[in-house]
């Protein structure tokens, strides 16, 4: 259950009031007739599925009924920012990774069971383990 700041109502509301509408900033080609089938197919069907920062379109369906954008981290589910239609995000995958780099934060590589542990893949490839498993 997300707690979402609606940039139009200017307060946080419960997720029940909102509908997610997919990836944000998908623009309809200005001249559809000039699009190749492939380009049109991309517009219709193809979406990003990043591990990390993602910009999403939502609507405050049970509320002001306004569409707006959410920048959300798909691993932590943290909402990094919400902004109105027509505005550009200030938090992006690039800005986040730069900030992390400056702060010396190690980027997660996935699959770690506990903080400070080696990734499974690395542990499994360890020569001493290979020996032990025989």
């Amino acid at each position: 259950m997300f707690h979402i700041y609606c940039p139009y109502c200017e307060e946080h509301r419960e997720e029940e009031e909102f509908h997610p509408k997919g990836q944000a900033h998908i623009q309809r080609p200005a001249d559809p007739e000039a699009c190749s089938d492939e380009a049109w197919g991309d517009y219709l069907f193809f979406r990003d599925n990043p591990r990390g920062v993602h910009h999403e379109l939502w609507v405050h369906a049970v509320g002001c009924r306004k569409f707006f954008n959410i920048t959300r981290h798909t691993v932590s589910y943290e909402i990094l920012e919400t902004y109105k239609m027509g505005e550009a995000p200030t938090v992006t995958a690039k800005s986040v990774s730069e900030k992390d780099k400056q702060a010396g934060v190690q980027a997660a590589t996935g699959g770690w069971q506990t903080v400070g542990a080696r990734p499974e893949s690395e542990a499994l490839n360890d020569a001493s383990n290979q020996g032990a498993r025989v």
Partner: peptide, 8 residues
């Protein structure tokens, strides 16, 4: 008092 919202 004086507040109003659309909600669930």
């Amino acid at each position: 008092v004086g507040k109003g919202v659309t909600t669930v």
